[in-house]
Nucleic acid binder design. Structure first.
Length: 322
DNA sequence: GGATAGTTAGAGTGTAGCCC
DNA sequence: GGGCTACACTCTAACTATCC
């Protein structure tokens, strides 16, 4: 597949919205036609095999845009505001705020449905299959995750999940950078690669079980341990107590937990505590002290330090930004 | 609300040894 | 030999106290 085909996928959509595109493979900002609505679409093409599109606009009338993807591609979409419905011959999907999707498309003839007077804010990252395969290569040059295997006999496959705090922080950084005039492509590319990494880990890696030392019953018990941890977030059991609660020895708990969730038991607990804190602070109904207490930290100072390590800013600073 | 220093409990890791 | 347990050691997360 040529890179021109890859860029055609997004470009047909731009044509439908009557956007004044200059060159298919260049970074540019395209304002919506004044008769269609207000806002713009920014395209960042840091390299020929990566395209990042930030859509921020509002249409004056309900609009349907046809899109026919000729080239197979992988697309990551983050919906931050508004809704966009996609209807194909054998599928239907609606992007909703706070969700993200990872899509694999072979050849799709679909239609986007966009509502009138509804502000839309979306960030999309597209890459061709060859690049996706290069990303999936392991140290010894082999590849266990393959585009064709993911799709099977289908022409389209979509994974969906809620945007987690780590991705939320990266998204804000990208959007802030995109608003500056002096932003360079490499800054946007770094963020996009981080988002791709998080999405691939979340959707494609977690289910790998071929090399597992765990039986189905062990996995069940480890999932039970995770439930107990989340229920007792403010007063968690020790590792030994937890292993007794699920009737598994601590050796298997430690090894198994790391295998399934990719981190140690208490690293997982810490992440979940900070994720919860992120949402509570975003909500704005609690101050830093209350949030610190609610997620199981008795010392707000230590909580602030952990929050800063995870999200790059102090909880108080984060609250003020919101 | 946040930073820092000192302290401590316990998580993480490596390994010897036991059992099947 | 593989799977597991038990134990010792290291390291770090979380704490308190104090200060700005």
């Amino acid at each position: 597949m040529g890179m021109t085909d890859f860029h055609q996928n997004f470009n047909r959509f731009f044509d439908e919205l009557q956007l004044q595109r200059q060159r298919a493979d260049r970074t540019e900002k395209m304002a919506l036609h004044p008769q269609m609505g207000e806002g713009a679409i920014q395209r960042f093409v840091p390299r020929p095999d990566l395209e990042i599109v930030i859509s921020k606009y509002k249409l004056y009338q309900k609009h349907k845009a046809n899109i026919f993807t000729e080239a197979p591609m992988v697309e990551l979409n983050y919906c931050l505001q508004g809704r966009r419905k996609t209807v194909g011959s054998d599928f239907q999907h609606e992007f909703a705020p706070g969700n993200y999707t990872l899509q694999f498309t072979r050849q799709v003839d679909a239609c986007f449905e966009l509502n009138e007077h509804q502000p839309l804010l979306m960030l999309s990252i597209g890459l061709p299959v060859s690049t996706f395969h290069r990303f999936m290569e392991e140290l010894n040059g082999t590849r266990t995750i393959d585009f064709s295997h993911i799709l099977g006999r289908h022409s389209f496959r979509i994974f969906q999940n809620a945007i987690d705090p780590s991705a939320s922080v990266i998204l804000k950084q990208i959007l802030r950078a995109a608003e500056r005039h002096d932003t360079k492509n490499f800054e946007i590319e770094c963020g996009a690669l981080e988002l791709l990494s998080l999405a691939f880990r979340s959707f494609l890696f977690d289910d790998k079980q071929e090399l597992s030392i765990l039986s189905k019953s062990d996995m069940q018990k480890i999932r039970q341990a995770r439930e107990i941890l989340l229920e007792r977030m403010t007063n968690p059991p020790t590792l030994v107590e937890l292993s007794r609660l699920i009737h598994l020895n601590d050796y298997k708990l430690k090894i198994g937990f790391k295998e399934i969730y990719g981190m140690t038991v208490f690293s997982y607990l810490r992440n979940k505590r900070l994720e919860k804190a992120f949402f509570l602070l975003q909500n704005g109904s609690m101050n830093v002290n209350e949030v610190s207490c609610a997620v199981g930290y008795s010392n707000p100072s230590y909580f602030a330090e952990a929050f800063r390590k995870q999200f790059g800013c102090n909880p108080g600073e984060f609250t003020r930004r919101f």
